[in-house]
């Protein structure tokens, strides 16, 4: 599949501190890509580099096979939503839309203003944080972009509007677009994204399709038997006994689950639950 975004060996330092350390990742076209990491991990630096706001010391960033550096025409294809509000508090909603539409094209702005129920006459300074975020979303869609770069787009939105945004993003991807989506909300990344990358201290520590990331993650196994479990039976590689109370046991299994199932087979089980760890559990593993 053709890459919408290709980041290769990007390094950025501020003095002695490496904000990005040889970051390499690829986002296939037609996907919602989730970019995860806590504050200070390098998410925003990566996104600012992708938008050519800051220039990496080394490496290359391509969007649809074109280098982003010094290539403003490429931004005709990119819609951007920043984690920090870039809106002018002294401008009205309409001023923002009219001014920037004049440069990039209106795209779906009128439709989105109606859909998100934005009062265009109001000054941004008088808007709630949720309404400001709605405006930022409308501006990101200006000019019918092919790639949306969104840094925490659901911040300040109520659950209904979050769902509306997820719907918009899915619709955008179905229409051939690509979304580069950073978020702290792991549940929403798990719901919306097709692929994901985790960044830690400026380095990519995991990247791949959402299903692959979750497949190799931890399983939580809860079993109940007709007789008491022996802890010694579960002293296996990558298995941790989380809770043991006579005939019930909870195990945390990292990686392959086969040996655990065989150990459990020695008992007459009355109940068995196997759950994939959530993306949040996986994420915490990378950071533990």
């Amino acid at each position: 599949m053709k890459a919408a975004v290709s980041i290769t060996g990007v390094t950025k330092s501020y003095g002695a501190k490496k904000a990005l350390d040889d970051v390499t990742l690829e986002v296939a076209a037609g996907q919602v890509f989730g970019f995860l990491g806590p504050n200070g991990a390098g998410k925003t630096t990566t996104i600012r580099s992708l938008m050519d706001f800051i220039r990496p010391d080394r490496g290359e960033i391509l969007v649809y096979d074109q280098n982003v550096r010094g290539n403003p025409a490429l931004k005709r294809d990119i819609g951007f939503l920043s984690a920090d509000s870039q809106l002018r508090s002294d401008w009205t909603v309409q001023t923002h839309i009219a001014y920037l539409s004049g440069i990039k094209g209106a795209g779906r702005s009128a439709e989105l203003v109606e859909l998100l129920d934005l009062d265009t006459r109001k000054k941004v300074g008088d808007l709630s944080s949720g309404n400001r975020q709605k405006l930022a979303i409308v501006l990101a869609f200006l000019g019918n972009p092919k790639l949306l770069v969104m840094d925490e787009p659901t911040r300040g939105l109520d659950p209904l509007l979050q769902n509306e945004l997820y719907r918009l993003l899915k619709e955008f991807v179905v229409g051939g677009g690509t979304v580069f989506f950073s978020s702290h909300n792991l549940a929403e990344v798990q719901e919306v994204c097709d692929s994901v990358a985790v960044i830690k201290a400026g380095k990519i520590v995991a990247a791949g399709a959402m299903q692959d990331i979750l497949k190799f993650s931890t399983h939580i196994v809860k079993a109940r038997a007709s007789r008491a479990f022996k802890s010694a039976d579960f002293k296996l590689a990558d298995v941790e006994v989380v809770a043991h109370d006579g005939s019930s046991i909870t195990l945390k299994v990292s990686g392959d689950i086969d040996a655990t199932v065989k150990a459990l087979a020695a008992y007459h089980l009355t109940n068995l639950e196997v759950a994939h760890a959530s993306l949040e559990d996986t994420f915490m593993e990378y950071y533990s």
Partner: peptide, 17 residues
């Protein structure tokens, strides 16, 4: 300082323009 320059930087405009 107030980040509003990002509105223009995200547009298809060169910095020199």
């Amino acid at each position: 300082q107030d980040h509003s320059l990002g509105l223009l930087l995200a547009m298809p405009l060169s910095r020199i323009k």
